[in-house]
């Protein structure tokens, strides 16, 4: 078990080092978020839009940011190097480390997005704690779903289209729950109104994580 954890920590560190050396990925994603926010801000031509619009825009931008950020997780390294990892570590360690890394990346993107959003479009959130808990759950959910999907899509030649075709319908249940909780947080409703949704998001996250860890070894082999 301890060897599993050391494998995971090493792999996560490898991801960070890789990111740090290349840098374009994270900068590209941040620029992507900032420019989409600006496109929305200028095309809606609103300084402070109403709650529903703000909320939907925020989550759609995060969704596509996640789709872009995570889709490269199996494509940036060449096939030969994957064989190399396969010799060294267990496939479970690889998927867990990718999910952890992508979750951290998504958290960073979420907070960057929230910052730009608040700056340009205003911040109508009333219950900040609930909103941030929701952001954490969303980051974990987006990254775990899309990591597995990007693993599947990377096996095909046309992976970027496939990524959205496979990923978007699968993420909808999660997205609906997230949007609902974040609307509750914006309106500053009592927290116990959102418990059902939070538990559901948590349950969907757990299911997806478990299924990914079980299935990834089979994907890896092909």
């Amino acid at each position: 078990m301890s060897s599993f954890f050391s494998e995971v920590t090493t792999l996560v560190r490898k991801e960070f080092v890789l990111e740090w050396r290349q840098k374009y990925a994270i900068n590209g994603i941040i620029l992507y978020v900032v420019s989409t926010v600006f496109v929305c801000y200028l095309s809606f031509n609103l300084r402070i839009p109403d709650g529903i619009t703000w909320n939907a825009l925020f989550w759609i931008i995060l969704l596509f940011g996640a789709l872009n950020a995570v889709s490269k997780s199996f494509q940036q390294e060449r096939d030969g190097r994957h064989f190399f990892y396969y010799q060294l570590v267990s496939p479970e360690a690889i998927i867990v480390s990718k999910i952890i890394y992508n979750s951290l990346l998504m958290l960073f993107i979420s907070f960057a997005g929230l910052f730009v959003f608040s700056l340009v479009l205003g911040n109508p959130v009333q219950d900040h704690f609930l909103f941030i808990v929701n952001l954490f759950l969303g980051a974990l959910g987006f990254s775990s779903t899309f990591t597995m999907i990007s693993g599947i899509a990377s096996k095909s030649t046309n992976s970027s289209t496939l990524m959205s075709v496979l990923g978007l319908p699968v993420i909808i249940p999660m997205l609906l729950m997230l949007i609902k909780v974040s609307k509750n947080a914006m309106d500053g409703l009592q927290r116990n109104v959102s418990y059902d949704e939070i538990i559901t998001i948590f349950a969907i996250n757990t299911i997806i994580l478990t299924v990914s860890i079980i299935l990834f070894p089979y994907l890896w082999r092909s």
């Binding site: 779903t145 597995m148 999907i149 599947i152 096996k155 095909s156 496979l166 699968v170 249940p173 969907i204 299911i207 997806i208 299924v211 990914s212 299935l215 089979y218 994907l219 092909s222």
Partner: peptide, 12 residues
């Protein structure tokens, strides 16, 4: 791969 996606999809 389609078997893997099938199981994953059913879980969601």
């Amino acid at each position: 791969i389609s078997a893997i996606y099938n199981i994953f999809a059913y879980a969601t």
